[in-house]
Design a protein around this nucleic acid. Structure first.
Lengths: 192, 192
DNA sequence: CTTGTTTTGTACCTGTGATTCAAAAACATT
DNA sequence: AATGTTTTTGAATCACAGGTACAAAACAAG
């Protein structure tokens, strides 16, 4: 059945994800990719077809891992408010801990490519929808537990939390010391 | 004093702003720019030096016009809450009214270029700071008027409003019918 | 009307982006 | 060992990005 691959495509997608994440789609060159992945151009195009196809794989992988990460965080034991605060603080720590300050790959992609690239826009929308759903479930749990005002529209609160998080992840790219981000978390939790 | 320019540099910067705004920095070519501005390449490079220099001018123009627009909105008569809601709704209308769904050029730039391009990152930070200041002044006015809880940290609330707006402008690029955006406004005002 | 200055249009150039191709290499099957 | 299939390597391709060079053109000053 032919010569076996000398590299793991999953690893290659993951490395590609790192490059696209840091540099953005348009600014990433095939040379950047082969340098990072450690394979030849022929192998890359044989395996993935095009830069854009590889990007879609990388973005889908980002979406899945990121969404799972957030969902796991919100699924922790504890009160709904604590879980929400914990998730926001974890996001702040994640963004501030990244020496490259890449922010969120989905947000970056939305800003760079949507709506002209409908394929990636769909993937981004999908991730936003998953995030919003996770927030909504937590908010509704908080309402049932009496921690959050039941009169509020949970769907609207979830959309607002999503917007807050997206904004934070953009701010993470320009905020140097993180005070701005921490303020956002405090004010958001105070407003909840 | 030499041959006079056959084009208005201000108009040229404004048109360049439109192209960069729609396509992003990396994806915009000098050819795109001369096509849109309607001048030759020689004139473009003679007048502006480089693609990047022109981008900085375009971004600075965006920052000034956008910040002034928001400040004027928040400076309207009426209660602080009404002014805040009015500003958010105006932003929603602005974003949904754009057939290209370009969102906010500063946000797009932050996502695409910060923090690797420190020059543009500074311009973006400057615009964020102006926006945050305008929000803060409005929030403080609301606190003095008793419309907003005086116990809240106005700076934190302003940062949180900034994050909310940034998030909305990213969502504007993927949200098709605008229901998501309107929900964000409702929930944010309800939480204030 | 000459001179000096600045702009303009066109041609040009170098590098690289994205992709393809040919041929050799590494397997499985028979 | 011969064959068929798939991958790898590395060169080659082709267009275009980003910018430069230069001569002609359009002005002001004297």
């Amino acid at each position: 059945m032919g010569r076996p691959k000398q590299f793991d495509p999953d690893v290659a997608v993951e490395r590609a994800m790192g490059v696209f994440w840091r540099k953005g789609y348009a600014a990433t060159t095939p040379q950047d990719l082969v340098d990072e992945i450690g394979i030849g151009k022929g192998s890359l195009y044989n395996a993935f077809g095009s830069k854009h196809a590889l990007f879609e794989l990388a973005l889908a992988r980002y979406r899945d891992s990121q969404a799972a990460w957030l969902e796991a965080l919100l699924d922790h034991p504890g009160s709904a408010r604590d879980r929400l605060r914990g998730a926001l603080e974890a996001l702040v720590a994640l963004d501030l801990g990244d020496p490259d300050r890449r922010g969120c790959m989905a947000v970056n992609t939305a800003a760079e490519s949507a709506p002209s690239d409908t394929g990636t826009a769909d993937t981004v929308r999908m991730m936003f929808a998953r995030t919003e759903s996770a927030f909504r479930a937590t908010v509704e749990a908080g309402q049932r537990a009496g921690e959050i005002d039941g009169g509020r529209d949970a769907a609207a609160v979830a959309a607002w939390l999503l917007a807050t998080v997206i904004g934070m992840r953009v701010l993470a790219k320009t905020d140097r010391d993180g005070t701005q981000l921490r303020r956002v978390v405090d004010a958001a939790m105070g407003a909840l």
